[in-house]
Design a protein around this nucleic acid. Structure first.
Length: 298
DNA sequence: AGATACCCCTGTTAGC
DNA sequence: TGCTAACAGGGGTATC
């Protein structure tokens, strides 16, 4: 379940190791769903990638993309979905479990490295998109100064860790809404990067009941909530993200350590770490929500 | 247009 | 024990 801290952990490793790598080969995909948004399929993907160099590794919310060299402004975009992984391996490493696609990169003809996309549940996807101007004149996301964003991602709001996040715009979207605040936190067009784990953790840390109507919070509490979520994410980032099993690992295949820090996510029915009362587990807009009815109020 | 239900997928686990 | 059903979840799409 890679959310912002997990994707950012991966981005940082990829940025260190992929920069200026030239795409030398693109494997045949082992699952058609991984390229479902790539018009023209793997043929078009190859045509766009072969010979180009990676000039930047950028992230907005849970989307990751690699800026590519060349006259036309293109980016290789990834979304990891629920179980996607991006792994760096030595050239020639045998297929990994659930491997879907592999890029071979060369560095000045001296060294070779392979970037492997693995995805058990195939909610993730890969495609090349054109880069277009960001609407607000600010950089596209973390890892770039260029004011460019892949086409089709205009509806993905800036994320909680983005210094250019327009907080007033977020507050405006929450104001007057009858939807549960948790649903709004998960809505990537309001603010991006938050998934089920950090929504539950952020709401617990803020003492806010997940079913609270978003509009009932008020600007002050909403502002505080966003700040708290970003603090939780900063901490998770220091731990290398959250892993429950082999589903989330960083680019080296290592798990993150934040799972032991979780206060509520995955702990339904267990005692609250703050007050000892058993944690509630309910469904909000089709997603599980765990919270403490004593520590979190509407 | 805002809100919500549903769908895609597969490995694990709970329950009969 | 062995099977089936439920569950996990991001985001696109359809539908109200």
């Amino acid at each position: 379940m890679p959310e912002l801290p997990e994707v950012e952990t991966i981005r940082r490793v990829l940025e260190m190791h992929l920069m200026n790598g030239r795409v030398e080969a693109v494997s045949d995909p082992t699952h058609s769903r991984s390229l479902r948004y790539q018009s023209g399929g793997v043929t078009a993907l190859r045509k766009a990638l072969l010979g180009r160099c990676i000039t930047g590794v950028v992230r907005r919310g849970k989307f990751l993309w690699m800026e590519l060299s060349g006259e036309s402004l293109l980016a290789l975009c990834f979304h990891l979905g629920m179980s996607g992984q991006l792994r760096l391996v030595d050239a020639g490493t045998p297929a990994l479990v659930h491997e879907r696609l592999r890029l071979t990169l060369d560095y000045n003809k001296e060294t070779r490295q392979e970037l492997v996309f693995c995805d058990q549940r195939t909610f993730g996807h890969i495609e090349v998109r054109e880069l277009e101007s960001t609407g607000d004149g600010a950089p596209g996301g973390a890892g770039t100064e260029r004011t460019l964003l892949p086409a089709g991602l205009e509806h993905i709001a800036r994320d909680v860790l983005d210094p250019c996040l327009d907080i007033e715009r977020v507050l405006a979207k929450l104001r007057g809404s009858q939807s549960a605040i948790k649903t709004k936190l998960l809505d990537q067009s309001v603010v991006s990067g938050i998934g089920n784990i950090y929504a539950d953790e952020g709401l617990f840390a803020s003492g806010i009941h997940p079913e609270t109507p978003a509009g009932k919070l008020g600007d002050k509490a909403a502002r505080k909530l966003l700040l708290t979520v970003s603090e939780v994410m900063h901490r998770a980032l220091e731990f290398g993200g959250t892993s429950f099993d082999a589903l989330y690992v960083n680019a080296w295949g290592n798990p993150g350590d934040f799972a032991k820090e979780l206060q509520v996510y995955g702990r339904g029915g267990k005692p609250c770490r703050r007050c000892g009362q058993l944690l509630d587990k309910i469904v909000i807009a089709g997603r599980s929500a765990v919270f403490c009815s004593h520590c979190q109020s509407t």
